[in-house]
Amino acid sequence: MSERSGNATNVSVAFDKARAEGRSVLVGYLPAGFPGVDGGIAAIRAMVEAGVDVVEVGFPYSDPVMDGPAIQRAAEAALAAGTRAKDVLRTVEAVADAGAQVLVMSYWNPVERYGVSAFARDLAAAGGAGLITPDLIPDEADEWLAASDRYGLDRVFLVAPSSTDERVRATAAACRGFVYASSVMGVTGARDKTSSAAPALVERVRRLAPDPALPVAVGLGVRDGAQAAEVASFADGVIVGSALVSCLLDAPDLDAGIAGLRTLTADLARGVRA
């Protein structure tokens, strides 16, 4: 039985709502602690107000091998400013009531170091919906599978164009909330074109997942509303990260960054409704 308490909800709420409205879910990523813990919280809240349905709060990590230059720079700045695990959880807590479901995206070592069960407990207590694990495959995830069951948390694993059918099936079976389809072979970062491999990958997940209703969200490379609309035409969710982070990285100050973030988010939100 789940020991989940409080008002936290899982991301299925957002996917059900979007499905009822005949659109896709917009998932937006920003790292905790950038720029500063409070700045990061303000940016995430602005992103939710402007139309993000599900938030990914990034846990800044010293060795982010899946991330391209934009997210690396933001994570480095967050760490240099002293962002800690408690700040990540404080960020989750501070944005959980903003109107979106909140997931943490973390490389595995910070979670393991915190203690897998303790992290699940504290994430649930902070109002978090679950965890995305870019370098944890279900084969290595026994402890996390148990802890996420115990605290009723979503667990989002990734599939890739190179994944075999067998792995797509097993990964989808381990996921709760949605399946993260990394649409291109590569690291995070905005691209001029979305991937041609993405529709086929989404189709494979839908065909192979034991639960055919499990949503599939596509990430890596989306940077504007037009691309979001394109991805929304075949996926249940559109994940945007680097383009949002760049709004903050490229801005002269936080206010300008947040203004840019609102503009881009609104554009993306129109895209998933197109």
């Binding site: 091998v65 899946m66 595995w108 870019p134 370098d135 944890l136 495959i137 084969d139 290595e140 694993f157 990734l158 599939v159 890739a160 164009p161 190179s162 994944s163 075999t164 792995r167 990964t171 990394s182 072979m185 590569g186």
Partner: peptide, 12 residues
């Protein structure tokens, strides 16, 4: 040991 890598590398 084990494999703590992105799924995209598992096939390789």
């Amino acid at each position: 040991g084990g494999r703590f890598v992105p799924e995209a590398l598992i096939a390789a």
